[in-house]
């Protein structure tokens, strides 16, 4: 089973667990399994349009999935998938 690590600020929405084991074939399906197990996580991982929120980064064995095949990246049972947030903000105005 693939291990999926949940960052501290999202654990309250996943019954406090830091890691879960998932039997999905790719990153997108792993996220689907995660959010079907913990529905309260969904709004913090995805926008209302179903896109991953800007602060959500996914690392498969220390490699950003953006440099792989995105959410289509295959995962295998001995892989480790981590959700790592990036943090951004700033006063109002143009980005």
């Amino acid at each position: 089973m693939t291990v999926l690590r949940i960052p501290t600020p999202l654990r309250p929405y996943a019954e406090g667990v830091s890691e879960i084991e998932i039997g999905a074939e790719n990153v997108g399906l792993a996220l689907e399994e995660l959010t079907s197990r913990y529905p309260a996580l969904r709004k913090h991982l995805f926008t209302d349009d179903g896109e991953l929120r800007s602060y959500v980064n996914l690392f498969l064995n220390d490699e950003d999935i953006r440099h792989l095949q995105g959410t289509d990246t295959p995962v295998s049972p001995d892989d480790r998938l981590m959700i790592i947030p990036s943090i951004a903000g700033g006063w109002e105005g143009q980005s």
Binding site: L10, P12, H44, Y55
Partner: peptide
Amino acid sequence: LDIVGVFHSHPDHPNRPSEFDREWALPWY
């Protein structure tokens, strides 16, 4: 220790979160 939050500055602006801060904010922190 744990990461319990984030600090940042607003140069010449109030110390209230902006709409952009909200869009990017994580819960709990």
